[in-house]
Design a binder for these strands. Structure first.
Length: 885
RNA sequence: GGGCGGGUAGCUCAGGUGGCUAGAGCGACAGCCUUACAAGCUGUAGGUCACAGGUUCAAGUCCUGUCCCGCCUACCA
């Protein structure tokens, strides 16, 4: 007997196969090959991170594509690697340092970086091992890291290139400043979050007048940096005041009243305090009117000297409170009105950002964005789902300069050198030898690049750029990029722009943007919300394959994909079902070993074999089609439905029946179908399918597939031809069986009791087929004593009845049948039929329908109508007979 | 303010270009240890496809409007 355990135990199986695949180099891509190329670059996870649910989904889908294309015979590259992830990683390190009672300034830059690298070395393997646990078939020999030497060279090369093209420049401009991280951040990194705040209405007295101007602000502390008050030029209320001055309360400064169209007369009081150094709009107004930019905050969010002696040193928030108190004391405060509004928070540390004027490095992304739009319109990049294309265009059309410098330490220092003597700015790969002025001393820019700059080069930097490599020739542009839609702008857009800028070619042909995993309430799963599933725990409990199947099965085109526990449980049950189907087949193969060639054994192929082969072919076609269109949900559904509800529920039951008669042919076909199913299922469930595939008899005389060493490199099944006749016949057989079962169930016929079945089949062809097959098939599904099939039959007394088109089934149930139950059953059915008949009649009565609808649709409708009529007539007659009894 | 996605069975979702009697998984109910699987098998119940119009021979599917829910985006101080 076979040693297969009754219940599938993933922990037993999963460990060994990854090793096996690795040691056989199945995941290794050839730099040059005659095969067509297929490449995906992994969205590099943070080096210090751990696998979360988003990674699990993203990488499962990628692995599905990769394994599928590999089986299809492509030269497949899945480029793996990790990201240094700039600020996030630094923040985690800072937290660690704080626990040790230290901080990054105590350590100093050099020691801090050293510490970061050390930590990176320690945790480097962690995320990789987790990806391997998930089954990811990456080409690990090629693993890269955004801060490794090669990628750093790529970063410098790209920077210098873009600098020389004038696309990268240094400028003093208003940027979002994070007082916590002490760095500039880009707009994308600022998340507007609604908070409850106040509108503070303040009186600004007009000089040489008894008029006071009432202004409203949500940030009273910024008034210390006010350098004007603005009104709308057409605002009649304030016409006479334009050009005058107000005395800024608490500051004893006189500031002008100016007119600017930006001011909304409807909003607040129609008078706007202008703080050019601390608000983007005020900044613009300030530029238009040449106002002083008065900075009152320090970089870490406290008040500086320019805030005045009363406030210097206070935090932003303490200062607000004190300003309000002082205003009240001075009788300047009119009122405080609660006001809910969106305030920008740094997405990495959740600190409220401070718009601040500072000297930063920017990239002018407009020209590249324009090219990106053009090539996308030409179809060189395709977004799936299509709706994402519009989001992409909208963003690209309104794109603003990208601030790329960060006042941080962990990352790529800008390849910019300043001459010690003349301050000349030089962009170069390495420290320059000599400046034009003759000086030879330089210092490198302290700032590092936004982490997305290096990830933006990922599709080609990982393949050796700026060197001309075989990898680039073979795999660039890559085939697909798979990621969540939430980083379309952060990453995908930048890769496209930088790809065009550096390679003069898009980085990928297709962008597949999958949904974000949500909980059962539709909320995005995230660690911070505490509603997240831990992939590794899930894998422990349910097994990797069950988890992967659930993820694929959840991947509908929706922007949020709920993954309830029950879905994973369902994956586990499916894995177990597959396991047991295999177990059944292999157990029986021991008794009936596969012959050398199964094809010639049976001259007369039984119906159920024709049927299952036709269904399999159909399944192959559907699964392949769904894969090609990134419809992972459909792949999972298709394979699940076929394997469980056709192969197991029906075919294996037929095969059992054959085995009881010592006819093993159907079993051998079952083995063949199973083998192909393992190949179809392999991209979704790599471990389970490998285990079963390996255990199936291969090679020698028992040759099922080509004598490959692993299902990983076995060919993807090809669909053959469907067999509509077999499918229709089997459908009728199944319907007959279903009806008998249903009658037995509803009329409570005891399980052990056998019944007689009388079938009236007017059509000779159908009758003949039923005569051939029913007798063989029925016993496997329901207890039957005898079957009578005839052109016309009388209804036996006390019998239950079912109608299938022109077929009528009678089951004599004298002594068993409960007339009332049977009456209810038939009445219910009749009511449904009446409704359907009426609907069909309505349609057919319509002349326009007959004239305008396609012929086949009309035919179908007529057919349906006829079938319904017959059934209706029979049901009515039966009911009559019942009630008259 | 603009834009996008969604509202189909108790729950989570499928239903490419309109056309079989609207489906699945989970859950519920009833009955089965039928030796591959009780993580299973069999049967049953459950839907005015958000609402109102319109186009069409035909609408869950297309159009318009309304109401909810979610998201993205925007400088209303």
């Amino acid at each position: 007997m076979t040693s297969l355990p009754k219940i599938y135990d993933p922990q037993e199986i999963e460990g060994k196969w990854y090793q096996f695949w690795q040691s056989n180099d199945f995941f290794h891509a050839e730099s040059t090959s005659d095969k067509p190329s297929y490449a995906i670059v992994i969205p590099p996870p943070n080096i210090t991170g751990s696998l979360h649910i988003g990674h699990a989904l993203d990488n499962t889908l990628q692995d599905c594509l990769i394994r599928w294309r590999r089986m299809q015979g492509y030269n497949v590259l899945w480029m793996p690697g990790t990201d240094h992830a700039g600020i996030v990683t630094e923040l985690i390190m800072e937290r660690k340092l704080a626990e040790e009672g230290s901080n990054r300034n105590d350590l100093g830059r050099e020691k801090f970086i050293e510490r970061m690298w050390q930590w990176k070395e320690d945790s480097a393997g962690y995320i990789v091992s987790q990806l391997q646990k998930l089954g990811c078939s990456c080409d690990w020999e090629r693993e890269r890291f955004t801060l490794d030497e090669g990628l750093s060279e790529a970063v410098r090369t790209a920077f210098v290139k873009l600098y020389n093209q004038g696309l990268i420049y240094r400028d003093t401009y208003m940027v979002n400043w994070c007082p916590m991280c002490n760095t500039a951040v880009s707009n994308l990194e600022v998340e507007p979050i609604e908070i409850d705040g106040n509108f503070y209405h303040i009186h600004y007295p007009v000089i040489d007048s008894d008029v006071v101007l009432e202004i409203a602000t949500t940030r009273p502390e910024t008034m210390l940096g006010d350098t004007a008050v603005a009104v709308h030029p057409d605002d009649e209320r304030y016409q006479h005041l334009i050009g005058k001055k107000v005395l800024l309360p608490l500051c004893d400064r006189e500031i002008p009243i100016i007119a600017d169209e930006y001011v909304d007369t409807e909003f607040g009081t129609g008078a706007l305090k202008v703080t050019p150094a601390h608000d983007v709009n005020d900044y613009e107004i300030g530029l238009r009117h040449s106002l002083e930019q008065r900075t009152v905050f320090t970089p870490d969010g406290n008040m500086n000297e320019d805030a005045g002696d009363n406030y210097v040193g206070l935090s932003r928030w303490d200062c607000r409170q004190k300003v309000v108190e002082d205003l009240e004391k001075g009788n300047y405060l009119v009122k405080i009105v609660p006001h809910r509004h969106a305030v920008g928070h740094h997405d990495r540390c959740n600190t409220i950002v401070e718009p601040t004027i500072s000297l930063q490095w920017f990239m002018n992304v407009r020209p590249l964005a324009q090219r990106a739009i053009e090539v996308t319109k030409k179809g060189e990049v395709k977004f799936i789902p299509e709706r994402e294309t519009n989001r992409f265009f909208h963003w690209m059309e309104n794109i603003e300069p990208w601030p790329i410098s960060r006042q941080r330490w962990w990352g790529h220092r800008l390849p910019i050198w300043y001459c010690q003597d003349c301050d000349k700015v030089i962009a170069a790969m390495d420290t320059p030898e000599q400046c034009e002025c003759g000086a030879t001393e330089f210092h490198q820019e302290e700032d590092v690049l936004d982490t997305w700059f290096s990830s933006g080069l990922w599709p080609f930097s990982t393949m050796g750029w700026p060197n001309e490599t075989d990898e680039l020739n073979t795999f660039y542009p890559t085939s697909v990029l798979v990621t969540g839609w939430d980083i379309l702008f952060f990453w995908v857009a930048r890769m496209i722009m930088l790809g065009l800028g550096c390679m003069d070619e898009v980085p990928f042909r297709t962008v597949y943007l999958h949904g974000l995993v949500a909980d059962e309430k539709g909320q995005k799963m995230s660690k911070s919300k505490g509603n997240s599933i831990d992939p590794l725990e899930t894998i422990e409990t349910y097994g990797t394959d069950a988890f992967r199947f659930a993820l694929a099965n959840a991947s509908t085109p929706n922007p949020y994909v709920p993954l309830p526990e029950s879905q994973i449980e369902s994956g586990r049950r499916f894995a177990n079902k597959v396991w047991n189907a295999a177990r059944f087949i292999m157990m029986n193969l021991e008794k009936y070993p596969l012959p050398a060639n199964t094809q010639t054994i049976e001259q007369h192929v039984p119906l159920e074999v024709q049927w299952i082969q036709s269904r399999l072919s159909n399944t192959i076609k559907a699964a392949t089609d769904a894969m090609e269109n990134f419809r992972f949900y459909e792949v999972a559904q298709t394979l699940y439905a076929f394997l469980w509800h056709e192969f197991c529920d029906w075919y294996l039951e037929f095969a059992k029946q054959r085995l009881t008669k010592d006819e093993p042919y159907a079993l051998w076909v079952a083995a063949d179908v199973l083998e192909q199913m393992m190949r179809l299922l392999h991209p979704l469930m790599p471990f389970l399918t490998e285990e079963i595939w390996q255990q199936l008899p291969h090679g020698g005389n028992n040759k099922l597939a080509d004598n490959n060493t692993s299902v990983t490199i076995a060919p993807w099944p090809k669909h053959t031809t469907e067999n509509p006749t077999a499918e229709t016949t089997m459908a009728t057989v199944m319907e007959v069986i279903d009806n008998i079962r249903s009658i037995r169930g509803e009329l409570n016929v005891p399980i052990g009791a056998s019944v007689e079945v009388h079938i009236q089949a007017p059509n000779a062809e159908i009758r003949e087929r039923l005569e051939t097959y029913l007798e063989q098939y029925l016993p496997a599904f329901t207890r039957v004593d005898g079957i009578t099939i005839a052109e016309s039959l009388p209804k036996p007394p006390s019998s239950a009845e079912a109608v299938i088109g022109e077929l009528t089934i009678y089951i004599p149930l004298a002594g068993v049948i409960d007339f009332e139950v049977e009456q209810t059953r038939l009445t219910k059915r009749l009511q449904q039929i009446d409704k359907d008949v009426a609907a069909a009649e309505n349609t057919l009565k319509n002349k326009n329908f007959i004239e305008r609808a396609p012929e086949n649709v009309v035919e179908q409708k007529k057919d349906l109508h006829e079938r319904l009529l017959i059934e209706q007539k029979k049901l009515k007659r039966s009911l009559l007979m019942l009630t008259s009894t």
